[in-house]
């Protein structure tokens, strides 16, 4: 394979911090990898693990979930709840063989445009190195194939 692999990455972000951070990266004209599709949500507390499964189901090679730093949540503790859920969900994914390298979590504030751009770049590079999520893709393929027997 000569072509370089362009990973598909989905980022679920909260509107108050990380989305604003992404906005800042844009208005500051910071360049970052175009592989990331951003989905904006009101709060990290709204980012259900179902979203991660859906992204994988639709063929994402990586997922990022990001919101306000602890203490900064617009709704005071949405991100604290989210943090617990991620901790558990992450362990579950890891145990079933969905590597934690493919599902990442971060805190990015509205002021951290630079961190946002850097993270997009490093995540894209990391997942590019991992390559496509072949095992999951094989399951997706199977759903499109005729029944065997």
């Amino acid at each position: 394979m000569n072509e370089i692999f362009e990973p598909k990455i989905v980022a679920f972000v909260c509107t108050y911090c990380t989305y604003a951070g992404a906005d800042l990266a844009g208005t500051s004209r910071l360049k970052y990898a175009p592989n990331v599709r951003i989905v904006r949500l009101p709060c990290t507390g709204r980012i259900s693990p179902m979203f991660i499964l859906k992204a994988l189901q639709k063929g994402a090679d990586g997922v990022l979930i990001s919101g306000c730093h602890p203490g900064d949540c617009h709704f005071t503790h949405g991100n604290y709840h989210a943090r617990r859920r991620w901790m558990v969900f992450r362990a579950l994914l890891e145990f079933t063989g969905i590597p934690s390298e493919r599902v990442k979590y971060s805190w990015i504030s509205a002021a951290e445009g630079g961190k946002f751009a850097d993270l997009m770049n490093s995540i894209t590079e990391d997942i590019r190195k991992l390559g496509p999520f072949d095992q999951y893709n094989a399951l997706i393929k199977e759903t499109e194939a005729p029944a065997t027997f």
Binding site: Q57, T96, E142
Partner: peptide, 24 residues
């Protein structure tokens, strides 16, 4: 959110959801 069909992908998703909702 998850496939209701019982192909391996749907089964994988179902079992992850079940285990997660029972965590703790």
């Amino acid at each position: 959110w998850v496939n209701t069909s019982s192909h391996t992908l749907g089964n994988f998703e179902w079992n992850i959801v079940r285990a997660f909702h029972l965590s703790g």
